[in-house]
């Protein structure tokens, strides 16, 4: 229980930072909504750890709920990293297009 309370306090801190960044217009609406959803989802999952324990046990996992959440978060991180790599690739291609255009235009 104390661990859950600590985790929820940390999440509350991140959400307050998020709201502050939005008010200062440091982030756009879409980014604000994405992170708000992310932290609220994390809070809901932490608040319902017992239910998740039962759920993962029922699904046949040997680990506890928090372990399964950790596995899931690592998988999501890998996916986001992959998406970032693809995005970077597209940006690289766009840069090359611009460089080529300038090279041909300047000739």
């Amino acid at each position: 229980m104390p661990q859950q309370i600590i985790a929820l306090i940390i999440i509350a801190y991140f959400i307050s930072r998020l709201v502050w960044q939005k008010r200062k217009n440091f982030i756009g609406f879409n980014e604000f909504m994405f992170w708000l959803f992310f932290w609220l989802a994390a809070a809901v999952l932490i608040a319902s750890l017992r239910f998740i324990d039962r759920l993962v046990s029922g699904l046949g996992f040997s680990g506890s709920g928090i372990e399964v959440l950790l596995y899931l978060s690592v998988a999501i991180l890998f996916y986001l990293l992959f998406r970032l790599r693809l995005k970077l690739e597209k940006i690289e291609k766009d840069i090359t297009k611009i460089v080529k255009h300038i090279a041909l235009k300047d000739k």
């Binding site: 460089v99 080529k100 300047d106 000739k107």
Partner: peptide, 18 residues
């Protein structure tokens, strides 16, 4: 000679394309 110039390095494949 003809000398198009990339303002930054983009690699051999990109230079050949240009």
């Amino acid at each position: 000679i003809d000398l198009p110039r990339h303002i930054i390095n983009r690699g051999q494949g990109a230079a050949l394309r240009t």
